[in-house]
Design a protein around this nucleic acid. Sequence first.
DNA 1: CTTATTAAGTCAAATGTATTGACTTAATAG
DNA 2: CTATTAAGTCAATACATTTGACTTAATAAG
Lengths: 401, 401
Amino acid sequence: MNDSRPIRAKSGTNHEGTSAHNRRVMIDALRINGALSRADLARATRLTKQTVSNIIEELERDGLVGSRDAVKKGRGQPSTPYGLVPQGAFAIGLQIDRHVTRAVAVDLVGSVLVRAEAGLPPRGPSRGTKVILDLVAGVRSKLEIIARQSERRLVGLGVAMPGPFGVDGSGDDPWMMAAWQQFPLLETLAAGTGLDVGLQNDAAAAATAERMVGAAHGLDHAVCLFVGYGIGAGLILNGELYGGANGNAGEIGMALLFADGKSTPLEHRASLASLYEHLSADPADPALHARINDLALRGDPSIQAWVKAAAVDLRWSIHLIETIFDPQTVILCGSAPEALVNSLIAAVGPLLPSIAERRGRTLPRLQPGMADPWSVALGAAAGPISRAFDPRFAAILKDSL
Amino acid sequence: MNDSRPIRAKSGTNHEGTSAHNRRVMIDALRINGALSRADLARATRLTKQTVSNIIEELERDGLVGSRDAVKKGRGQPSTPYGLVPQGAFAIGLQIDRHVTRAVAVDLVGSVLVRAEAGLPPRGPSRGTKVILDLVAGVRSKLEIIARQSERRLVGLGVAMPGPFGVDGSGDDPWMMAAWQQFPLLETLAAGTGLDVGLQNDAAAAATAERMVGAAHGLDHAVCLFVGYGIGAGLILNGELYGGANGNAGEIGMALLFADGKSTPLEHRASLASLYEHLSADPADPALHARINDLALRGDPSIQAWVKAAAVDLRWSIHLIETIFDPQTVILCGSAPEALVNSLIAAVGPLLPSIAERRGRTLPRLQPGMADPWSVALGAAAGPISRAFDPRFAAILKDSL
DNA sequence: CTTATTAAGTCAAATGTATTGACTTAATAG
DNA sequence: CTATTAAGTCAATACATTTGACTTAATAAG
């Protein structure tokens, strides 16, 4: 009679969950609106003045918020706005790419304080791990010099690398990512740094960055179409990054397209990888990024031809994203050179008709996002900040400890 | 200096939010696992035995749960399992389709107690409203006869109709849905019934039904691919139905496919609408559903040809859904005749390779869901039940009242 | 210049829920 | 028959928000 099938249930909550949520809501409000008075916060969050006062006092003790100069606006006692203190928290972001790894340190408001980059030796984790740990250690010590006490306020290490994760077969990038997939990376990094470690794919990281400091700031429904070596979509749904059942949601670049009687993944047609092939360029060449940016700026015909072809696929991808997600806006971003992304954005219009064409739109259907080799590392770093401070359902639950 | 730009913030929560969440978690646990003892509930929800006792007592007072026979399992005091009481709550679901409207009454566990159907006169809401209100009134009075006191326990009226909602242009179905889109339907129904009214598109409704009583029961990440007159995807993400920024998420049928030099929406190629056209059948013919079911069962060659062609597009849709959402499973369901859906499921395999191919899968990539003309109405009714009793982020917030 | 009004923010007590730890009940194992 | 184990209750406590009165500090109006 021992039927010990596991009982599945969501976790309950208690006072601490309530309090944690309210703290996060407060921080979120300050992040979206800038400095606000306690009275404003009370109105916006529907909490009482007293509760807001208590929480603000606590956040101030914790060094997360600080008061600004009082403002007199009309009758009544002048209000004292409170704003986020950038030095209230820090996080390290780590991008692991095919030939290179980048680490950044960011603060509570998402400003990048330290950057560092290193080449990744071939043969994957066996030698790469040391390079990465050294890189992170270097960033941490530089951060500690710039921002005293930052070690104490480090909320985590966010890692971003190309997905998908945990999928059968090695995928289509034999260079090295498959080796990293096998390796217990998160455990190794956690052990090597003593930090909480989280993982995202690079498109998700880009979306996390856009939400903290970019075009998706303050939006609850946005999709970032990320053009890098591959193509992915970072999904902001209900104000949170959506990862799917296994963290692989948004791997749109692996979508198979059928044309001319054969099937091809989207990212073989419109990603940087496809451009490199089109140009017969060596992806490992460190000067390539700048050269492509240059060519794109000058209107190089070979680049233009690729842009024109890629724009067709991206236009369709945007249409599909709008149709499936019904977001407030789509953001086109990438680790591709900025001039190239700008060319793509210019070439991708006019957009295809979709359900996004509705009365009373306030945001453009398509917005440019970051196009910067560092944006993925920034997003990686934004991950732990978001997990620690943004309002989310999981944060009220008792097992989120 | 009067900068009265609105302040945007998420809502805070308080003790009642906590309590509401814990009640919902309790109900959810009983729905997923069947009857459980207080001790089991305490372990599963991570609440204390005492808290669970308090909440169970309250839920029992409210008539939502009831005790079952004590079970002796090993040492210790026998446990008393508590389970949901079906008569604890009721909801009415209303499907508004092109030529027909259906209403059902369901109870807390999603059993259909009453069904009623009526033809919809042409010219849209002007005359249709009365038909609908009469239909709902009829269902309510029949329900009251079957289940005494049900009126008092009616949590709402859920409406399902084809989307998309609020989009420019009339869409591609001139028959009548455009007229319904203009009309203040929800307000009219709320006024005419005195009930809380909610709206979903039909694919979302189907997903809601699958989650309450079907293949998505207990799943937090599932996508229902719904084949009806049109095609849509009902998205269960993080345990909640996802509607997007405007309730139009999942309108995958409107995705444009490019082939043979022209673009065609998916649902012009693979929906019932396309089958009707293929057969030169009149969609308004009430006998059509049964006839198609019959033909499909008998292996009619014309049907088989359509199935074969549609399966290609559906196979690709499933691949796309897996690639973009990374769900635990995809469910193929529809208002199409059951035999037809079964043919489609048979013809759609083998599935395309995707990130869904991973080590340690427990659920099939594709599962059959409901294929029943009443499933949308059932899902419509499941909507209010879910909103009232399922755990969700919005339910803890102060503005969810 | 004085007073009324308005709004921000504080204080202390009250309220609502979950928690704690001791206790009771009731079964099985040995 | 007794020890052990587990379910469930009781009473007191802890925690976070709420309530309503109060204080502070500004502008508007006469």
